[in-house]
């Protein structure tokens, strides 16, 4: 029973990832795509956490932990690239930056 619920939830999260993927493919703007990829990354973390419990290999949870952090850095990097067209530049005058 437990495994059934876990698998159902995993499938639901997969469905969400599929919907996000459709949005990423449709666009239209680049920001829609980044948003969808961000959702996709968050859901990956949840999938890994769920798979940890389905398989019982509890070491996998560390991968989810690391993925949560890497996903954030990836999004921040992509945004910096989109906004400044340059990964190395800093814009100290823009206080609205994340």
């Amino acid at each position: 029973m437990m495994t059934t619920v876990l698998v159902l939830t995993t499938l639901a999260v997969f469905a969400t990832m599929g919907l996000a993927l459709v949005r990423a493919l449709k666009g239209p703007s680049i920001y829609d795509r980044i948003l969808a990829v961000n959702v996709f990354g968050t859901k990956t973390v949840l999938i890994v956490a769920l798979i940890t419990f389905i398989t019982g290999h509890f070491d996998l949870i560390d991968i989810a932990l690391v993925y949560a952090l890497i996903n954030f850095i990836a999004i921040a990097t992509v945004l910096k690239l989109v906004k400044t067209r340059n990964l190395a530049s800093a814009t100290p005058d823009d206080t609205g930056d994340a």
């Binding site: 920001y31 980044i34 968050t42 954030f72 999004i75 921040a76 945004l79 906004k83 994340a98």
Partner: peptide, 13 residues
């Protein structure tokens, strides 16, 4: 991190 990422996308847009 989720709000920071969302804010960054919104700000960039």
């Amino acid at each position: 991190t989720a709000p920071t990422a969302t804010h960054a996308v919104a700000r960039a847009a």
